[in-house]
Design a binder for these strands. Structure first.
Lengths: 338, 338
DNA sequence: ATCGGTTGGGTAATCGATTACCCGAGTTTC
DNA sequence: GAAACTCGGGTAATCGATTACCCAACCGAT
C-alpha cells in the first residue's frame, strides 16, 4: 500500500488541501487543478485511507451487527435483509457471531466498540446473561436490538410480535379441529423462546383445549427430530404440534412420519419463521412468516434516530406476522394458502 | 464516546507516555504509576481507540473475507471454520457477501482495502469476471483464495481436490452397479462448477459407462428439484446421479421420490460438501465430505506467509476429500459408512 | 569527587485525511 | 480610486495512540 494524498498532491504539483478538495469536491478548485489531481490519483492508484478518515471525522461509516450464529437460516436471512437495507447508505456492516455464548458476545461487542462503529444492531443470545454487555454498549453508541432482546428494557427493540404469531398458529390448528396441542420449542434462554411459549399457552388456555407439557430444547432440526421421537415414545399423540421455528418443525415432521404418523391427517404441525426450507419441506410446512424485510428496515430506521445513552424510554416495535398455510395443517378459511 | 488516553493520563497525574506504557506494559513503569493509571482507566471506562491505533501502527488487526453468499450453508460453514481458526490470534474477521455479483464483489473488496485489512480471504464468485478485482487486491495485501478461484493463477489458493472428489463419487456408484450416469451441477461460472463437471466426465469416461448430458443450473435446492423433474420428464432414468453439492442432491432426491422413483434402488444419488442437512436428508445422503476445517486452517496459515504483490509463483493447495456413504447409494466395501 | 551506565519519565513526532484559518489577487461598488 | 468582497490556494492543527528521543536522577566504580 502506501500512496497517500501527499503523494498525489506532490505528483500534481499542488498542496494537500487542494488535492483533498479536488478529490472530495467539497470546495471548488480550478478545472486545471481538478484535472491534474484526478490524473495523478489515477496514475498512482490512490485509494483514500479509511482509517485516517475515520480518525479525523470521528465516524467510521460502519455499523456492527451481532447475531447468535450464522448457521441458523433465520439469522442469515435477517443479516441479508439488513445488508440490503444499508446497501445504498454508504455504511458497511461488520458482522459478528456470538456463537450463542454471552462471553463471546461481550468480547465481540468490545472489539466493535473499540473499532468505533457508528451503531450496533444486536440479537442478544441470552435474555439474562447478555444484559450487562448490551446495556454498556448502548451507553456508548446508538444500539437497537433485533429479534431477541434482553430483559428489563433499557435498549430499543424491533421484532416480530411473537405472541400474536403464536396466537395465529394455535387458533389455526384449533380451527382445523385440534382438541389437544403441544408446543415444541427452545429452552427459555431468549426472549423469543419465552414469548413464543407464553403466546402458545395463553391462546391455548383461552381456547380451552388440552395442553400437553411443552418440549423444550434448541432451535435446531436435530432437536425437532428428538422432540418427535419423544412424542412417539410417549404413546399418546396430540392433535397438533406448534413449533417455535421451522427447523424444529421440519425435524419433527420427519420424525413423526418415520414413526408412521401421518401429517397432517393424524397430527397437524405448524412452524415459525418461514425462511429457508419451509417451502421445500415434505410436505410443505404451514408456518408463521416473520416480516424480515420490515424488521430490518425498521431497525435501520430506528438506529438512525437513537442516540447513545439516551435517557428517553426504550421503544419496542413489534411487527405483526402472517400465517402461511401449506400442507402440514388442515386448511381452513383463515390464512393464506400457497 | 470520548475518553482518551490523555484523559486517563491527566486523571492519573502522569504523561500520556507513561499512561500508554502502563496500559500496554511494553516498557516498565513504577508500580505506583501502574496502579494509578489502572485505576484511572477503570474509573473513566477507558477503551483504547482501535482506529487511532491502526493508523499509528499501520495495521488494523483485521482480515477481510468475501464469499458469494451467506445463504449457502457451505459458505457459512467455512466462514465459521475460519473464525474458529482466527479465534485466538487477536485478528478479527470482516465478513462480506458478494451476492454472486462481480460488481458487488469488486465494491466490497474496495471498501475492505480502504479499511486497510491486513489480509484477504476470498472465494471469487465468477471465474472470469472476478479476475481484475482479485488480482488488484492481491497486489495490495496478502490474499488467498478459498474454495473457488479465478482463472489464470496469480493468487494463492486453498481448496478441496474437486476432481479427486468427483472420482470418488463416480467410482462409488459404478462399484454399486451403475452403468449409466448423469451429472447435476451448476452453470460453469466458478472453478468448482467446472472442476466438478470435468472430474465427473473424466472418471466416467475412463470407466466406460454411459454418460447422459449434464444438467447445469445453480447450487440450490430449487435447482435440484428442477433437475429431478427434468430427469423424470426425459422418460429414461440413469442408474446414478452425481451432484455438484448437497443442496442439489437433496432437491433431486425429493423430486425423484415424489415422481415415484426409489432411491437408491432405482437411482443412486451422491452429493458433495457434507455440510448442513446431508445427514438429515431423507434418506440420509451419500456424499463427498469437504475437509472444511483443514481448508480453513491451511488458508489462514498460508495467509500468514504470503506477501502482497509477491512475484513468487502462486501456490495451489488441494486437500483430498473423503467419501461418506449413507443411504442414497448402494453401499460397497469402499468408503466410510455412517 | 567524578564519570559511565542504568532507569524511568516527559515531550513531541508520527500515521493520513480533512479543514479552520490566513493571505493574495481579482472584482465590484460608490 | 479606495473600500469591501469574493475566490481559490496554501499552512498547519486536528483526531488518539505509540514511541523515538531527550533528560534528570541515581547507581557503583575509580
Amino acid at each position: 500500500m502506501g500512496v497517500t494524498i501527499h503523494d498525489v498532491a506532490r505528483a500534481a504539483g499542488v498542496s494537500v488541501a487542494s488535492a483533498s478538495r479536488a478529490l472530495s469536491g467539497r470546495r471548488k478548485v480550478t478545472p486545471e487543478i481538478a484535472e491534474r489531481v484526478a490524473r495523478a490519483a489515477a496514475e498512482l492508484g490512490y485509494q483514500p485511507n479509511a482509517v485516517a478518515k475515520a480518525l479525523r471525522d470521528q465516524t467510521t461509516g460502519t455499523i456492527g451487527m451481532v447475531v447468535p450464529g450464522i448457521g441458523n437460516p433465520f439469522f442469515t436471512t435477517i443479516v441479508e435483509a439488513v445488508e440490503r437495507e444499508l446497501q445504498n447508505s454508504g455504511t458497511d456492516l461488520l458482522l459478528c457471531a456470538s456463537q450463542y455464548s454471552p462471553q463471546v458476545e461481550a468480547r465481540r461487542l468490545g472489539t466493535l466498540l473499540a473499532r468505533r462503529v457508528d451503531g450496533l444492531i444486536i440479537s442478544p443470545c441470552d435474555i439474562e446473561a447478555s444484559v450487562p454487555a448490551v446495556l454498556d454498549a448502548a451507553r456508548r453508541v446508538p444500539l437497537v436490538q433485533l429479534d431477541r432482546y434482553i430483559e428489563g428494557g433499557g435498549a430499543d427493540w424491533v421484532g416480530v410480535d411473537d405472541e400474536a404469531g403464536l396466537a395465529l398458529a394455535v387458533d389455526h390448528v384449533i380451527a382445523g379441529g385440534a382438541r389437544s396441542v403441544v408446543f415444541a420449542g427452545s429452552r427459555l434462554v431468549s426472549s423469543s423462546a419465552r414469548l413464543r411459549l407464553s403466546g402458545f399457552e395463553r391462546t391455548a388456555a383461552r381456547a380451552g383445549v388440552e395442553v400437553l407439557p411443552p418440549l423444550l430444547g434448541e432451535f435446531t432440526l436435530e432437536w425437532g427430530v428428538e422432540a418427535g421421537r419423544r412424542l412417539l415414545d410417549a404413546g399418546r399423540l396430540p392433535d397438533a404440534v406448534v413449533c417455535a421455528n421451522d427447523e424444529i418443525a421440519v425435524g419433527l415432521v420427519r420424525s413423526l412420519r418415520f414413526g408412521g404418523v401421518r401429517v397432517p391427517e393424524d397430527v397437524a404441525v405448524v412452524g415459525f419463521d418461514d425462511v429457508g426450507h419451509a417451502t421445500m419441506c415434505d410436505p410443505p410446512l404451514s408456518t408463521v412468516r416473520q416480516p424480515v424485510e420490515e424488521m430490518a428496515a425498521e431497525a435501520v430506521r430506528l438506529l438512525g434516530q437513537v442516540k447513545a445513552g439516551d435517557p428517553r424510554p426504550a421503544q419496542r416495535i413489534a411487527i405483526a406476522p402472517r400465517l402461511v398455510v401449506r400442507q402440514t395443517s388442515r386448511p381452513v378459511a383463515a390464512g393464506v394458502a400457497e
